[in-house]
Design a protein around this nucleic acid. Sequence first.
DNA 1: CTGAAAGCGCTTACAG
DNA 2: CTGAAAGCGCTTACAG
Lengths: 340, 340
Amino acid sequence: MSDETERRLTIDDVAKVAGVSRSTVSLVLRNSGLVAERTKIAVREAAERLGYVYNRTAAIRARHSYLVGIIIPDLTNPFYSELTAGVDQVLNDSGWISLLGNSWESSASQEKILRRMHEQNVDAVIICPVTAADQSAAENLARSGLRVLQVLRRTEADTSYLGIDYAHGVALAVDHLSELGHTDIVLLGGERVYSAATERYEGYISSMRSHGLEPRHVPCALRRSAAAEKVRELFDKEERRPTALVCFNDVVAIGAMASLERMGLKVGRDVSVVGFDNVADAEFVQPPLTTIDTHARQLGERAATLVLDSIRNGSPMSATTIMETSLVVRDSTGKAPLRS
Amino acid sequence: MSDETERRLTIDDVAKVAGVSRSTVSLVLRNSGLVAERTKIAVREAAERLGYVYNRTAAIRARHSYLVGIIIPDLTNPFYSELTAGVDQVLNDSGWISLLGNSWESSASQEKILRRMHEQNVDAVIICPVTAADQSAAENLARSGLRVLQVLRRTEADTSYLGIDYAHGVALAVDHLSELGHTDIVLLGGERVYSAATERYEGYISSMRSHGLEPRHVPCALRRSAAAEKVRELFDKEERRPTALVCFNDVVAIGAMASLERMGLKVGRDVSVVGFDNVADAEFVQPPLTTIDTHARQLGERAATLVLDSIRNGSPMSATTIMETSLVVRDSTGKAPLRS
DNA sequence: CTGAAAGCGCTTACAG
DNA sequence: CTGAAAGCGCTTACAG
């Protein structure tokens, strides 16, 4: 049928075959109400028969690019892959497609990705900004003229924000442990200073205070291995061993649990551990992890929905949306051991 | 500085300020060697000062779109998120950007994504095709004129392929268990028929035979919960309990282990479990999981590299590339228990 | 080395 | 309802 010369078919080819003008084909392809039903059918048939593929790239005068960027710091963290899957799902269902950017917490690569997405003319970008975001990065974000929704972390940049009530989530964890009789409850994780960390921290401090307990924060990097090591140090010396750990997220909790088991401490009996996120594995580690569910998938879906509504209506997004968390009790938490 | 009327700046604006022609600006932006150094500097300064952002979308005559699609069946599986992170990394480093598509194993949505990526004029697509891929989907893939690289799964579609030596990987697992004295070794997982499943299956069968052992395959869906349930059924009755499980992947293994522990069986002593992939959590579950490392990240990097080389040189990709796996021994495997 | 002109494959008024 | 013309913001020969 077609020659070797791989020329991509154009709207004009379709027009010729269908016996209409280029404008009419264009209208049909975008499903305009202006065109007669018969004409539509003829055009669609011609396009189908020829194997024509619409070239959105050439539609530079169109209102939308149907591209939305999603920038996250670490796709490898199950929380973020879940979030990304949620975003992608909703975008796809609506005819949009996601441009992915994994920044690895590097503000340099975040900047690069952001610019490239801008160049590709994205209709919006959903971004969980890197913790090290310098002022200028934040400024650029707001000034760019891009429609941007920050998620999970809130920087100086004056854009819309979709977040989680971290403070309340941590309070749920502390309340749960306090009810079980724990008094030495350590907050594990979070070295850097950024909103998602300080909100957790403040939630922890104030809920410890409200129970009349003395807070203790042990900062650590958000990797399984770093958490494992920190916990080893923490329990190495006999004195001041906490009886419970509130972890920054499930990844930290899983690292911590592995370390405790290796030291011969039984999680859920000798030491209680609470995670944060309710990642897919949380239910299947040993013992199953008590955690604060942050509903990653729904969060992603929500982010995409907010952004799409705004794109389609040309309306601004609501400035701030906060989602609630919930406590999921499993076996990694139990009654506080008796004081020895 | 700029008015309210959010008109995006064009190359002409830059040209005017820099005092050169539009063509010259275009050449500078693409870093052509044709332009004098002084001119380049002047143009770049003007662009910078104005805050001009290149509009790649309008460059419809350019050779590349700088977009590469990556389509996977489940971003939520840590293996795929690792793979995707690898792809994204390499693409970003080279100035490309990834268009993400999560098909959720649905061939309908795979088709939609593929078409949308084609419409967006991607330079290539890296795809792990859905298992249910019908003939027509595969045909389309090959005929589309798109540059496509299939990864992990090989369909009828006649495109380049980057895969893993699954058969050998499974054989490594069986050899390991056989050396530990196991004879009742079950292959757990893989219901559907597609290359990555049959290759594992064949590797299992032939290596069991070579050890003079009787193979037994227990199909099950590739989710933690499904695996947990299948294992419960399998160990429910006293007779014919296997002493070792070779799992389709780590997700299955983690589900299986959770179930065994719940039944009071000690993994690594009563039952040995081998996973597949060496996912990040494998090292941190209890007990740490013996598994076959499929090097997901490197695989993704390799896929991106193959595709980029082909894009840049306009050369075809090598038809088939197969990567090797390696055995990682941890505590989930141990000597076969004595026959009771 | 640089610019004027034509072109890419669409969309958008506008006329009928 | 449909088509001819102009336009989008770039790139690409081509001339000098």
